[in-house]
């Protein structure tokens, strides 16, 4: 066993349908505990990449490893290590916050679902609303429950897909604090349009355009101004 397998390793990952390539021969290796921000114009394949890591989409070619598990061959084992927060809350509006989380906790086989759910609701500051239906929650509160949902299986890798869309500034602040508090030694991958926020949180950045990796660097090796210029020129390339 080699020492500490990477949290996420992509080798020649390609997602193609016909001649259209959403992600084209992308390779990267992300160490444990890193925070990767993925940037790029619309249609660059960011979300497709994230969905492939999340095992929701199978790559057409190449290999993805999550915590040393081949996501294509053993998706169920990889899934146990993954949590996804997206702009879609993935919560049943007519169930209470607690019921929603209990549902997911049981699907993941959490040993003590009741305690885990209370602990998580407490962490996101919604313990007092646990018996209310999700339908009655504000967008920001729903997103907080959604964070709890993604963490229910105590994942080593957390994926964030445009988590800020639809949140007001205050909710964004709360969201950021929460992410910081659950950071621990987890690995994060975030897809976002927000360059500033993405740069501030990240320690690794990936810029994609037309399915390919234009740049992949640890942030401290990065000249921020140069990066901004690169980012602008990439986004300027527009939709593929």
């Amino acid at each position: 066993m080699s020492a500490a397998p990477a949290a996420i390793r992509c080798e020649g990952v390609t997602k193609a349908f016909g001649t259209r390539k959403a992600v084209d021969d992308l390779s990267l290796e992300l160490p444990r505990g890193a925070f990767l921000s993925v940037f790029g114009p619309n249609g660059a394949g960011k979300t497709t990449l994230l969905r492939m890591i999340a095992t929701l989409t199978r790559p057409s070619a190449g290999r993805i490893e999550v915590e040393g598990v081949d996501a294509k061959e053993e998706p169920d084992r990889a899934r146990e290590a993954i949590g996804l927060i997206s702009h879609n809350p993935m919560l049943y509006p007519d169930l209470t916050a607690e019921e929603n989380l209990l549902l997911y906790a049981r699907l993941y086989g959490v040993r003590d679902p009741g305690a885990r759910v209370i602990e998580l609701l407490d962490a996101v500051g919604l313990k007092h609303r646990r018996l209310d239906r999700v339908r009655t929650f504000s967008r920001g509160m729903t997103q907080r429950v959604s964070i709890a949902r993604a963490l229910v299986n105590d994942p080593a890798v957390v994926l964030l897909d445009e988590p800020y869309s639809g949140l007001d500034p205050h909710a964004i602040e709360v969201f950021d604090d929460l992410i910081a508090s659950v950071r621990q030694d987890r690995t994060f991958v975030m897809v976002s349009h927000d360059l500033e926020k993405g740069l501030r949180l990240a320690d690794h950045v990936l810029v994609m355009a037309r399915g390919r990796a234009v740049a992949f660097d640890p942030k401290d090796e990065l000249d921020e101004d140069e990066f901004r210029a690169l980012y602008r020129s990439t986004v300027g390339m527009g939709v593929a």
């Binding site: 066993m1 915590e67 290590a81 169930l95 549902l103 049981r106 040993r111 299986n153 105590d154 080593a156």
Partner: peptide
Amino acid sequence: PASPRSELCARPSALEQYRVLLMK
């Protein structure tokens, strides 16, 4: 040794998952 599952979780059983989804 490489199992990425958290210590909080056990291997979920399909029957339990079925029951949970149905109850939902």
